[in-house]
Simulated scan of single mutants.
Amino acid sequence: MTIDDIMSAAPVIPVLVLDERLDPIELAKTLVASGLPVLEVTLRTPHALEAIRAMASVPGAIVGAGTVLDPRQLDAALDAGAQFIVAPGLTDGLTRAAIGSGTAYLPGVATAGDIMRGLDHGLDRFKLFPAESSGGLPALKALASPFGDVRFCPTGGITAATASEWLAHPAVSCIGGSWIAPAGETDLDRIGEFARTAALLRPN
């Protein structure tokens, strides 16, 4: 799958920080059934790679690894079955490795310089991160203006209440949201409710 395929598959990508309290297969089934098939499992916990491997077996799930920091983590995520890679920033080493692997890759950017370095690598799809604390919607609008062909997945600080505002901007293809499965939430019915509401949102 291309990064455009992934970014257009659903308006919201759940950003998941997983521990042993939630069964990753049941979580993936819940999210896919609720209309959010693209799942970003962040490599922030010891359970992340195991969760990616398990969730990748769920029909309809498009499972990726987030918070990938270097080529070693890239290789581990791909070995676990990740179908796409998300990084919090943009470095030459990881970018070259990700492009070389042929996997769909979404590096993080926060400045015009970040975007220009990505363009030098042939990339024009980015995660705007951290979206809210980097200036919010005004910053997105300012960054999108000189880069007309660039599309973003803003992530970081976006909530259910602000999601539609971000998705209304024409440079936004989708957003990342940790509110779908917030830290400590173990009720799959509640997570399914959040996911169904998010799946009804429509980008620009």
Rank of each mutant, 00 (worst) to 15 (best):
M1C: 11
T2S: 15
I6V: 14
M7A: 14
P14S: 01
L16I: 15
L18F: 02
L18T: 10
D19R: 07
E20I: 07
R21A: 09
L22P: 01
D23M: 06
P24L: 05
L31N: 06
L31K: 04
V32K: 00
S34C: 11
S34Y: 05
G35A: 12
T42V: 15
L43K: 03
L43M: 13
T45Y: 02
H47F: 14
E50M: 12
A51S: 14
I52G: 00
I52L: 07
A54T: 08
A54S: 08
M55T: 06
S57M: 11
A61F: 09
I62Q: 08
G66M: 07
V68P: 03
L69Y: 03
P71I: 02
R72K: 13
D75S: 11
D75E: 12
A77P: 02
A77C: 06
L78D: 01
G81T: 09
G81M: 04
A82Y: 04
A87M: 04
L90V: 00
L90M: 08
R96H: 12
G102R: 01
G102D: 05
L106M: 08
L106T: 06
P107C: 03
V109L: 04
V109G: 07
V109W: 02
V109Q: 01
A110N: 08
A112G: 10
A112E: 11
G113D: 13
D114F: 13
G118N: 11
G118T: 02
L119D: 04
L119R: 10
H121L: 05
H121W: 05
L123N: 07
F126P: 01
K127C: 12
L128N: 06
L128F: 15
F129A: 03
E132L: 07
S134P: 08
S134Y: 00
L137P: 02
P138E: 06
P138D: 01
A142Y: 06
A142C: 08
D149F: 12
V150D: 08
V150E: 14
V150Q: 07
C153W: 04
G156I: 00
G156T: 01
T159D: 00
T162P: 03
L167N: 10
P170R: 07
A171Y: 00
A171W: 09
S173F: 05
C174V: 10
C174P: 15
W179F: 09
W179K: 00
A181S: 13
A181R: 12
A183F: 13
A183K: 12
G184K: 02
G184H: 05
G184D: 13
D187L: 05
D187S: 10
D189P: 03
R190G: 02
I191W: 01
A195N: 06
R196E: 11
T197V: 14
T197C: 07
A198Y: 12
A198L: 10
A198W: 11
L201E: 03
P203Q: 14
P203L: 15
N204G: 12
N204E: 12
